[in-house]
Design a protein around this nucleic acid. Structure first.
Lengths: 346, 346
DNA sequence: AGCGCTGACGTCAGCGCTGACGTAATATAG
DNA sequence: CTATATTACGTCAGCGCTGACGTCAGCGCT
């Protein structure tokens, strides 16, 4: 009976249960649970024991309902299958822990509707703020959500149109410069027909991608023409990269270098080139973006533009902390530095 | 003034606000929000309009406090940097959506304390149940959490000691059979010194890993000796795989095949072998486990044991649904089938 | 006319918790 | 020895919402 009541109470245990057990008021138990002090060490110990015995855990929803903060943050990523997101998520997670916050992650596959649902759910469940890798075409949504009072930090938006709104801050690596470094490197090593293997979504409408800008800028600077045949869009995946190379290799005058939207696409491209009997980098150089861990583990090792994922995550969390304190604070931080990492594929 | 009140209400909008606007009771608004019916289409429309105008969103914490369910589930993964977890997470996400549930993800890096915190937070915030890739040495924790009333589905536990507890179910792929298929394949193709490159954690204490059992079983069946020098543990990462190969290559009698704990380790191993000038598979065959997408994108392509991540995630969610209905239901399901995928590395 | 019945609402309590404030006992100051 | 501060609690309301139940008008039926 006793042993049973200790380990397996079917009903949820509340503050009141603990209070009754000890013979104090629920308020006092609450004080102990929250370490507010204002009670005898002796009382504290008795309550602590009772909490242990009854296996009490605070109901965070009830607490959140009153406090209007939960010490949690949401991370809304696009696609967990692209290793870039997990890498940043780890950085966010680490930083969140430093601020004693729990991070909950939701992913959207880049779908605006799913992003909307994720944000609504996170907000409704009381996260104090969210860090978002925005889905395509979701600026209006983000703006509305922010106006509902949810602080948002937008991370690494590749599009150049800015979101200016109180409650929305943004953090990103210096993507355009990264693209410039990559393309300049290809040009410097003698490449003249440089393809841009990107995400289809970025070719729809009149999108202006920072990577695209960097690519064009560097070609122009070197006096190289921009050949639309060399700009191909595919799904953001290994398969998308492979498909892109297949398209490029049908050209009468195929490229001698590929600048990929990211490493996932680049890795797919790399493989397809090898399968098709092209030598990398002799026949075709390949350079990716993000510098995910796999870049260093494939053969030939993939050159890439390094983004410090840990720093990016950390900066995002710090920025969120800032706007949690003051909604007008730090609308945007300086773009984080990027670095060209030349390996064997270029 | 009006436009302002429409778009940017600073205060949180509640049912009562909407009710006041329309001139009905909060209860009626609640009925509309939850689609309970029992009101005139006309009233419904007026309320719907007011909800839109005031930008009202239900407070899910308040709702959860009463309903004692939130239609959310938690996924507690070990390490997002191992692509296996994101792949399963996608499967879980997809299945959760089918059941109209939102999934929140937390990761633990295999640390029991962080797992404890993640579970406490998820439970406290009212998730209806969790799917857990257990951290090492966390069975006691899981048991306690389950006894607090949180339904748990344990996924893909490699250890052979079972958790038998109401409120805990388990789902996994047939890991031991997978290991047997992989090792048997290596033996069948003439390999005689087969190394087992595993996770350090699994070598601590008297752990019995399903993969280890499969490995030993097959060696025994073929009459091959078990050489402790060929069983090395390292961190579960690309670097861990590289380090493992470095250790193995110092042996006087190095292996002619490597059976890796998972693909991440296998990919690291593969690279280090190539760097060290070994030919794969001619000098050393390598086979991984999980069959993550990258297996098919590296050169040489990595042989592996395929686990259907989508099915695994889906089964986990279905099992959770089952114990949500009945805590005694489906304690454990049959192990999901695995498949040997032979590519270029073996 | 009187009956019950249905539909469309409203009323009220309370989920579990904490902020604001009250109170009694003891410690310290004048 | 009284006045005041401090400590260690308790009381109470209410966060936003929904379950249970109540009310009342309108309808069909005898």
């Amino acid at each position: 009976m006793n042993a049973d009541s200790i380990v397996s109470s079917k009903k949820t245990v509340t503050l009141a249960d603990v209070a009754a057990r000890v013979g104090v008021s629920a308020r006092t138990v609450s004080r102990v649970v929250n370490g507010e002090g204002g009670c005898t060490p002796e009382t504290r110990d008795r309550i602590t024991d009772a909490i242990e015995e009854l296996n009490y855990r605070p109901n965070l929803m009830a607490r959140g309902l009153i406090r209007k903060r939960s010490d949690t943050i949401g991370l809304v990523a696009v696609d967990m299958l692209d290793p870039f997101f997990p890498e940043v998520a780890e950085g966010v997670q680490r930083a969140a822990r430093r601020f004693k916050r729990t991070m909950f992650l939701a992913s959207t596959d880049g779908d605006a509707e799913r992003q909307r649902q994720a944000l609504a759910s996170l907000h409704g469940h009381g996260v104090d703020g969210v860090i978002v890798f925005p889905a395509w075409n979701s600026h209006a949504d983000l703006t509305r959500t922010a106006r509902r009072g949810l602080p948002i930090v937008v991370v690494n938006e590749d599009l150049t149109d800015d979101l200016v709104e109180p409650n929305i801050a943004s953090v990103r690596a210096d993507i355009q410069r990264g693209a410039e470094l990559g393309v300049a490197h290809l040009i410097d090593t003698g490449r003249r027909r440089i393809a841009f293997l990107t995400d289809t979504k970025l070719l729809e409408g009149a999108r202006v991608s920072r990577r695209g800008v960097g690519y064009r800028t560097q070609l122009a600077r070197a006096g190289l023409p921009i050949d639309q045949n060399l700009i191909v869009g595919n799904h953001n995946s290994l398969a998308g990269g492979r498909q892109g190379v297949r398209q490029l290799l049908t050209l009468a005058d195929p490229p001698d270098a590929i600048f990929a939207y990211n490493d996932l696409i680049a890795l797919g491209a790399l493989q397809e080139l090898l399968v098709q009997g092209r030598r990398v980098p002799d026949d075709v150089a390949v350079i990716g973006f993000d510098d995910i861990a796999m870049c260093d583990a494939v053969t030939p090792r993939l050159s890439s533009i390094r983004i410090d994922c840990d720093l990016l995550g950390q900066t995002a969390v710090e920025t969120l902390q800032a706007i949690l304190g003051d909604p007008e604070a730090r609308r945007a931080t300086a773009a984080l530095p990027v670095e060209l990492v030349v390996r064997d594929s270029s």
